[in-house]
Structure formats: C-alpha cells, structure tokens
Nucleic acid binder design. Structure first.
Lengths: 119, 119
DNA sequence: CCGTATCCTGCGAGATACTG
DNA sequence: CAGTATCTCGCAGGATACGG
C-alpha cells in the first residue's frame, strides 16, 4: 500500500522547506556528485570519471560547498601521490528518496518526450 | 511497510534520467511554480503572490518554458480584464513524490542546521 | 489584469595552464 | 593524483517601464 499522505500539497512553511532544500542542492552538479558518493566512498578522480562533463575546477568547488553544508566528508591521507577520499554522511543518505523520485520522474519524462515527438 | 527498493543507487542510465529531470526543473523558480499549480488551477497573479520574491518577468518566462515541456497548461479567457489560468497536467502530478521528498528533506536539513549552530 | 520590452549585473561554468 | 589560478563568457535573473 502506498502512503497517500505523500502529496505535494504545500503550506507556506512547506514551501520554505523546499526552498531551503533547493538552495543547498542548487546548480548543475551537486546532486550528481552526491549520487556518486552515496554509492560508496570515492576519490577525487573516481567521482570526476563518473560524472560526464564536469571539470576539476567545478568538482573541487562543489565538493567544498557540499562539505560546508555537511553533505560530504573529506578525508586526506598524507601520502605520495596524494589520496583524498570523499564520503557521504547520514544527512546525505536521507537524500535517497529525493534522488529516487527524481530518477523515476526522469524516466517518465523521457518516455513522454519520445511519444510527443513520435509523429 | 516501506519499499526498500527505493535506494539512490544509480547506474549510468539512471544518472542520465536524473540529469534529464534536473534539466527540465532547473532554475530557481520552476519547482516552486509547479508546487503552486499542483494545488489547483491558478491565475497569474495568484501564483505570483504565492511565491515570495518572484518578478512578473520571471514568472512569465518560466511558465512559458514549463508549457513547452508540457508541465503546465495555459488557458486564456477572452474577457476584460483578461483572465489567464494555469493548471497542472498528469505529467506534472507525477512530480508529487519529488516534491514531497524534497520538502521532507528540507525540514530535516533545517533541523540539522539549527542543531549545528546550537553552541 | 496579464503580461512584454529593455537594460543591466553577477555568477555559473568552461578552457587552459600550472603546482605539491 | 588532487587540486589551484586566471581568464573568459553566457545567461539566469533583478529593476524598471510600458502596453492591450
């Protein structure tokens, strides 16, 4: 059974919550980075390779922002060559449902587009 | 019971789906507009009033984009003063889960921040 | 009421080159 | 490997004014 309380009906306060969420997850890359990290601790280059099109500069910048929001944990191993690992937090994990929903909707949307252009 | 298949684990194809979704919902206002409309058919000014800080220019622009993606339906009543109504589509409604998840996470995040600054 | 037309600004983001 | 440093540009998005 589906929990029918899962509606999008939003009070003003709810809207604020959504706004807050969007503010933290804004931009083209943040969610993609979080998805990569949620599947396990990863190194810088591993993340970069997983996300098509992202530049080192952007990845570095976004990771830093996410870190200040406590959405990723950065761990440096003092070795040569340098090793840095990024991992998720409990707080990140709670994004599961957002990502899942977004993924499902993405597929739906894709289908819709295909049908629409299916003249 | 919760469906445990709702994990964020994403294949490359899944990542594409998320990217597609983000592309359509990008920007500061789209989701907020959709939330407003999902709660019922609304007129231009009604939406504007509900979304704090949005300008007429932005609302107009975003609504147009959403319309081309078939996420809102625009209906014009030829009267004076003019009346224009915007409503959701079935496709928009399927965003329910995304919005709900985002809302829930927004609240969680807010709490987290409050605790963090609670020195 | 329901927008459009301009003008303007900052920042998101790519390209490239370089360091420890 | 894991980044930083510049430079550059487009465009998201704000302010203001006007039109049917």
């Amino acid at each position: 059974m589906i929990d029918l309380s899962q509606t999008a009906s939003c009070s003003t306060k709810d809207l604020r919550a959504v706004r807050d969420a969007l503010e933290v997850l804004n931009g083209k890359w943040k969610l993609q980075i979080l998805i990569a990290i949620l599947s396990g601790t990863k190194r810088f280059k591993e993340i970069a390779r997983e996300i098509e099109g992202i530049s080192d500069r952007m990845l570095s910048k976004e990771l830093k922002e996410l870190e200040t929001h406590h959405l990723v944990v950065r761990k440096v191993y003092d070795s040569f060559p340098p090793v840095v690992e990024y991992s998720a937090t409990a707080h990140t994990s709670s994004l599961d449902k957002v990502i899942y929903a977004l993924k499902e909707w993405g597929y739906l949307h894709r289908e819709k587009i295909i049908h629409a252009s299916d003249v």
